[in-house]
Nucleic acid binder design. Structure first.
Lengths: 132, 132, 132, 132
DNA sequence: GTGGTCTAGACCACA
DNA sequence: GTGGTCTAGACCACA
C-alpha cells in the first residue's frame, strides 16, 4: 500500500500525504478507515517516525484524517472541501509552473490538456461522491 | 520588470528564473534581448549577486539564455524544446498534484480546465513563435 | 582519499568532482558506496561546505552520485553513459588541444598514444564493469 | 582566416592562440609570415584589442611568434619544441580529463584512440617538418 | 545530522 | 565592466 522513493526530490512526508489523499480519491481508503500508527508505518517504510508524524499532522490540519485519542488515526468521516483562497492560489501557482515548463519542453496546450484528462481518468471520472 | 517576494517559499533564484521564462513566453523578452548584468539585477532587486548568478547559470544550462564572452547575458536565439523524459515526468507529477489538491478544495475537472485555459490566455494564445 | 591543491588553477570543486569520477573508474568507489557528507568532507579538506556542495550538486546532475533523503550521498547505482553530442564535442576539443600542445612540445603521435595507453593502464584495463 | 565564437566557453584569446598554432601545424602559416596587427585583428573580429594583445603576448612568450619592433608580428622562423616539464604535465592532465570524461560518455579506449587518429590525420600525418 | 538557500564580501580571469 | 570561484557564516526544511 505505502511506499517511499528516497531518491525522489519530493519530501518523504509529502509522498505519504499524497498517497493517502490519492488513495481517498480513488476509493482505496474510505471514510472511517483506520490508518497504521506512526510507529507501524515508520517501521514498515524504514523511515524516521518524525516523518510519518509530520505527514499525519498536516493531513489532520487539513481535516483529511482525524486522530481519536488512544484509538488511532482514521480517514475523516466528512471532509468538506473548503474554498481556501490561499490554497487556491497555490494550485494556480502549480498550474502556472506546469504551463511554463510544458512550453519549454515543447508541449502545447492540447497536449497538456490531454495529460490532465488522463489524470482525471486515472482518478476515476465517476468520482467518490465525497463532495459537499 | 523584475521583482522578488522575499516572503514567498519559492527561492529567489527560482522566482527570477520563472520571471524570465514567463517573460519569454509572453513575448516581453525576445530572442537576442540583453538581460541586465548580474550586478545590475542584484542591485536593482537588492539581493545578493550570487543569487542572480545562480538563476542565470541554471537558465544557461537549460539553454534559455546564453552568455556572450564579455558582452553579457542574452535570451538565447534558438532554444529548441527537447523532449526530456525526466522533466516530462516531473510535469506530470506537478499536474497530478494540481488534480489532487483541486479535488480537496472542491474544484472539479471543468473548473481546473478553466484555470488552465485562463493561464494559456494570459500567456498569449498568439504564441511567441519560439517553438520549433 | 581526498585532497585539494589550493595552488592549482583547477577550481577546488572540480578537483573534488574529478577525484570522485576517477575513483569510480578505478573501482575505489563502488556503486552504492556512501560518500562523506558535505560537512564531513569540508571539515576534512578544510574548505567551505559550499564548495563541496557545488561539487556534489554537479555530480548529481550528471547522475554520477545520488542523494537519498536524509541518508546522505551515494555513488549512483546505475549510471548509464549517455552519448551527449555536446559533451562529445567538448572532449574532441580537449583532445585537439592535446594534439596541438603536444606538437609544440615536440611530442609526436606515437608518444601521445603512449601517454594515452599509460592512462588507460592506470585506470585499470580490467574495467570497473559500470558500462552498459 | 580568423574567427571567434563568443558563445564558446573557451576564452577568445585562447581561440586566437589555438587558431594560429593549428594554422602553423597545418602549414597555413609559414615561418616568417606576417600576422595582422593587434589593431587590425581586433577590428576584424570586433573584439577588444586587449584580447588580441594577450593572445600575441602569450604566443610570443612561447616563441611561436615574434614581434619585430615597428615592423609587426611574424610567425617565428625557428621554433624549437622544448620539453618543458610543466607543460608536459598540463598535457597529461588534459589527456586524463579526456579519458575520464570519455568513460562517462560511454566511449572506450579504442574509440578515444580513433578520435586521436582522426585528429592527427586532420593535422596532416606528413607533418610540417618544423620539428628540431 | 543532512543538504539547500541566501547574504556579504573578496579575488580573479576575461574583455 | 562581466561573470566565476571561494570563504565565512546564518537559517531552514527534512529526517
Amino acid at each position: 500500500m505505502f511506499y517511499v522513493d528516497v531518491r525522489s526530490s519530493k519530501p518523504i512526508y509529502e509522498q505519504i500525504k499524497d498517497q493517502i489523499k490519492e488513495g481517498i480519491i480513488k476509493g482505496i481508503f474510505l471514510p472511517g478507515d483506520k490508518l497504521p500508527s506512526v510507529r507501524e508505518l515508520s517501521t514498515l517504510l524504514t523511515i524516521n517516525p518524525n516523518t510519518v508524524s509530520k505527514a499525519y499532522q498536516e493531513l489532520e490540519r487539513e481535516k483529511t484524517i482525524e486522530t481519536l485519542r488512544g484509538r488511532g488515526t482514521y480517514i475523516a468521516e466528512n471532509y468538506r472541501p473548503q474554498l481556501d483562497k490561499e490554497r487556491l492560489q497555490e494550485i494556480k501557482e502549480l498550474l502556472r509552473r506546469v504551463v511554463v515548463e510544458a512550453h519549454y519542453l515543447g508541449l502545447d496546450q492540447v497536449e497538456v490538456e490531454e495529460m490532465l484528462n488522463q489524470l482525471y481518468t486515472e482518478f476515476g471520472g465517476s468520482g467518490n461522491g465525497n463532495r459537499s
